[in-house]
């Protein structure tokens, strides 16, 4: 059992390492191949002497071949040195860590909202399937699923913050409760799509479970409605977990846009600013961090499968 888990973990680790390598190398190639040079972005339209250009090229090793440049970066990264931002001169790890907290808070709150909204609505729809309430919930969930978080964010901003003045318009607040208060609207914008997805998964799997023989048999034995529902819900754990994983990753990525809408100084706005500036070290850092976070989410979901369904772990134990 323990060795099976260890092997599983190591496999995952190797897989993630490959993904990170491919991604970081891909980004390097892109920058190398892309039109427009780094020194041009740095200098803008200011006049510059040939010496200044050469100094910049030397500082950022821009004359080295692609593979050498990449190797230097990789060697540094493996030693925990992600380089410095071309734009601000700040070390990349400092730039990222000062902004990661906000993104994580936003994603956590968004996921929480999505779970609290989506799962109960999905259960309600399944229990009333075919009736008006079910149809209404399903239509709303399709709309939610189709709504881009930045559009929802703008609509919420316009209505609840600008028109009604119930929520702060921009910024991340002054820490503590104020911070969370500022995050309510952006988190809601992020949660709408996730809630739609969770409604879909929860409703479909619960409808399927409620039709299963074991549910009929439990009712025939005189088990009450609540306990029968608990039976069925327990068996929906795997699809709901799958959806939760999808929601978490989509919210992590979606936060990029929502941060732009609400002018929140998180990883997303950092990434967008750096991308247009061709600030490779920062782009690399943010992309790698988000990829690692997504790998962690997937790992957690897989581990949760085994906890939720003994059949998963039983099969694994047999091998």
């Amino acid at each position: 059992m323990a060795t099976a888990w260890l092997r599983f973990l190591l496999g995952r680790l190797a897989g993630t390492a490959v993904v990170l390598l491919v991604l970081s190398f891909g980004i390097y190639c892109l920058v190398y191949l892309a039109p427009g040079s780094v020194e041009h972005t740095l200098l803008g339209n200011r006049p510059a002497t040939e010496e200044t250009r050469a100094a910049i090229r030397a500082q950022y090793h821009l004359d080295d071949p692609l593979l050498v440049q990449y190797w230097n970066w990789l060697a540094g990264a493996l030693h925990g040195d992600l380089g410095t931002s071309i734009r601000s001169g700040e070390p990349v790890d400092v730039a990222i860590s000062s902004r990661a907290t906000l993104t994580l808070q936003l994603s956590t709150l968004g996921t929480l909202f999505a779970l609290l909204l989506g799962i109960p609505a999905g259960i309600a729809a399944a229990l009333r399937r075919g009736r008006a309430a079910d149809q209404g919930i399903v239509v709303l969930s399709v709309a939610g699923l189709s709504a881009p978080p930045f559009a929802v964010g703008l609509l919420l901003l316009g209505l609840l913050a600008v028109k009604l003045g119930w929520f702060p318009v921009y910024g991340a607040g002054d820490g503590g409760l104020d911070r969370w208060w500022h995050l309510v609207l952006p988190a809601t914008a992020l949660a709408i799509g996730g809630a739609g997805l969770l409604v879909r998964f929860t409703r479909t799997s619960l409808v399927r479970e409620l039709d299963q023989d074991y549910v009929v048999f439990a009712r025939a034995r005189g088990l009450g409605g609540v306990r029968v529902l608990r039976y069925a819900l327990r068996n929906c754990a795997v699809p709901i977990l799958t959806a939760t994983g999808l929601v978490l990753t989509s919210i992590l990525v979606g936060s990029v846009l929502v941060e732009v809408v609400f002018a929140l100084p998180g990883l997303g706005s950092l990434l967008v600013d750096s991308v247009t500036f061709k600030d490779v070290p920062v782009v690399q850092g943010v992309a790698l961090l988000l990829t690692i976070l997504i790998a962690l989410v997937n790992l957690a979901v897989d581990a949760a499968y085994a906890a939720a369904d003994p059949r998963v772990s039983l099969v694994r134990r047999k091998r």
Partner: peptide, 13 residues
């Protein structure tokens, strides 16, 4: 992360 890759590719290129 698909959207992220799309942002990086279209942004950088």
């Amino acid at each position: 992360p698909a959207l992220l890759v799309a942002i990086v590719v279209t942004g950088v290129v």
